[in-house]
Design a protein around this nucleic acid. Sequence first.
DNA 1: CCTACCGATCGGTAGG
DNA 2: CCTACCGATCGGTAGG
Lengths: 203, 203
Amino acid sequence: MAKTKRKGREEKQPYHHGDLKAALMKAALLLIDRHGIKGFSLKDAAARAGVSTAAPYRHFADKDALLRSIQSEGFVLFDAALALAFEGSDTALAKITEMGVAYVRFAMEHPAHFKVMFSLSDDDESGPGGGSTKGFMLLVEAVAALYPNATPETRNDLVVVCWSIVHGFAVLQIDGAFDAAFGVGDAEARLRRALGLLFDRTL
Amino acid sequence: MAKTKRKGREEKQPYHHGDLKAALMKAALLLIDRHGIKGFSLKDAAARAGVSTAAPYRHFADKDALLRSIQSEGFVLFDAALALAFEGSDTALAKITEMGVAYVRFAMEHPAHFKVMFSLSDDDESGPGGGSTKGFMLLVEAVAALYPNATPETRNDLVVVCWSIVHGFAVLQIDGAFDAAFGVGDAEARLRRALGLLFDRTL
DNA sequence: CCTACCGATCGGTAGG
DNA sequence: CCTACCGATCGGTAGG
């Protein structure tokens, strides 16, 4: 109903009203979530957005271009979340901790974005961290503030530690490995305890 | 040449001589490495093994059965590597460290196995850790030995820390994230420095 | 283990 | 943005 109201374009399609590009990306994200990156098709995404199979090619050169758009969007959202965590915290330790929580939360709330961001072959530059230059630099800065006496090399190694633990946690949590091993639990609470142990010198 | 020597079966195919199952798994691993789990086909694997497209169905009910065989094989190899690292080390700290090195080394040497092991939907039981019951238990044991006064809850959280850092390191190293961020370097050396910092109380 | 084949789906294009 | 379509490939099966 209410779709053939006026014939003056913009009102004939059931879904979008000019934001087909966004609608296709949204549909693709849902399908990637369900079937993986290689397991979804542009045809499926088009159908889910309510358009023909040829329509996506008006907005994306090919399937890979769609994926790259999703990757870019993901890194923008990701960097914003990390920056917010950084700026919203006072101490260096709090900055690192909250960035870690934001990292994992992003991965859990945007698993399809996360998957595309880190498993798309970065043929181009895309910077360190698979594309997230900004978030990476904030982490380096926070680590430097927390360990002001560390050498640059040690600082890098500390960044490796923080990055690895948070990335590994995100992946294992999403895959259900922790829930399988320890029983279902609150992921954020589990992460906060882990990060607490990591930085707790009294253990 | 030299393939129609004797017609008494076992000598007509160019590759395998009865171990077609293993040949198909090997071919599949190579293709998964190149195109991902969803990106390889049984037909490709069959061709690479030198047999017809119908031949694989003599050894595997369907494509998923091949993947599950690879997953099982992967966990056997993985558990063996972790057990060897555990048993070959004296102290608890050494056990944890060497298991971590073995974990990452396995992921780097068997990336296709690793990918299948951790990204196949575990519809069945498959135990904690996505299937690796044995390696997981050894890690718990080593952590308990290293922190004998920790409560069971804290022990779990310490296992989460160790597992996360090592898994995250493996994934990020394989994806090339570290090389992109810090420049290409020796992965094992980098990991040993990171694990050293993790357990170094004097920092 | 092979030949031959089915039905389905896919990425992408022609030509409006 | 649509209809119609191509060539290719896929998982899987029939029937030896």
